[in-house]
């Protein structure tokens, strides 16, 4: 049984593409045949984050319009065997995405993939709506910051009303909260919303936090999904989330301040 997972947020710049790439790569590492699709038509970036920008020949819209076959458009990752990327078109208008066309591509992908990760564009326009339309599961990526939380709440409302599952009155999309750029030190100081606060306001199941990490930028600079980069906190946090997503009981990490020594406790922060 294949599953369509949309990575969405409403607000831009919160880490949707980073999360899509990291999550898809981690699913593939765990042995699942996974494809990650970029829905940001006109502003594609997943190819850069995945490090395959020079291998793009055909894209999602070419496939929808029959200008290229699906297996010509799929780019096979060179690092993990069962990971594929379907890039967005850079030249066309977002309105070119139709639910009918996207539905055909998703249906074809369901035949050969276990997980289909859809990287949504920001906003609530056509691209974002078609990225979520066929979802079985949703990762709502949120920064602990007021505008991101508010936008996430709007998106959660849309996942409950504007998806195929909602229209057909079948089981609702399973939503999961992912809090990115989390800084436990600032949370403890009272300068940042805590994961508990965000959970309480959005009232959806909590998948985990990704700690603020310099290595996230370093990984995207080099075109490596953070979960395939050298060992780092963000990568471990994403693997924890993937394991929870797959049904394992993994204790939450990276939520508390690391204990400090005697001197720094008194004289520095």
């Amino acid at each position: 049984m294949s599953k369509v997972v949309v990575v969405t947020s409403g607000k831009g710049g919160v880490g949707k593409t980073t999360t899509s790439a990291a999550f898809a790569a981690a699913l593939a590492v765990r042995g699942y045949k996974t494809v990650v699709i970029d829905f940001d038509v006109g502003l594609r970036n997943l190819d850069l984050v995945m490090g395959c920008e020079r291998r793009v020949v055909y894209d999602l819209l070419n496939v929808i319009h029959g200008e290229g076959a699906l297996n010509q458009a799929l780019i096979k990752d060179k690092r993990v065997g069962n990971l594929y990327i379907l890039p967005a078109s850079q030249t066309r208008d977002k309105d070119a995405l139709s639910n009918e066309g996207v539905g055909k591509v998703i249906e074809a992908l369901r035949q050969s993939f276990e997980y289909i990760v859809c990287d949504s564009p920001a906003g609530i326009e056509k691209g974002a709506m078609s990225a979520m339309y066929f979802a079985d599961e949703a990762l709502v990526v949120t920064n602990p910051e007021i505008s991101s939380v508010r936008d996430s709440d709007r998106i959660i409302g849309m996942l409950a009303s504007k998806t195929q599952r909602a229209e057909q009155d079948s089981d609702p999309v399973n939503v999961h909260l992912v809090v990115t750029r989390y800084d436990p030190v600032r949370v403890e100081r009272g300068d940042m919303l805590s994961a508990d606060d965000v959970c309480e306001i959005l009232a959806i199941p909590f998948l985990g936090v990704v700690p603020e990490s310099k290595l996230v930028l370093a990984a995207s600079n080099s075109g490596i999904p953070v979960t395939l980069a050298e060992d780092n906190d963000a990568s471990e946090a994403y693997f924890d989330m993937v394991d929870r997503f797959l049904g394992e009981d993994v204790p939450y990490r990276f939520m508390d301040v690391q204990k400090k020594g005697f001197f720094s406790r008194f004289f520095g922060s």
Binding site: E145, I146, V149, R150, D153, R154, V187, R189, G190, D191, M192, L193, S194, D197, E200, I201, R265, F266, F267, G268, S269
Partner: peptide
């Protein structure tokens, strides 16, 4: 740290944010 201990307490910005969010989100 030790010096914060003597500073007067003011409401933390995170709790202000939470309160504002709860109001706007329930309204919307």
């Amino acid at each position: 740290n030790l010096f914060d201990f003597f500073r007067p307490k003011k409401p933390k910005s995170a709790s202000v944010a939470k309160e504002r969010l709860q109001i706007i989100v329930s309204h919307e």
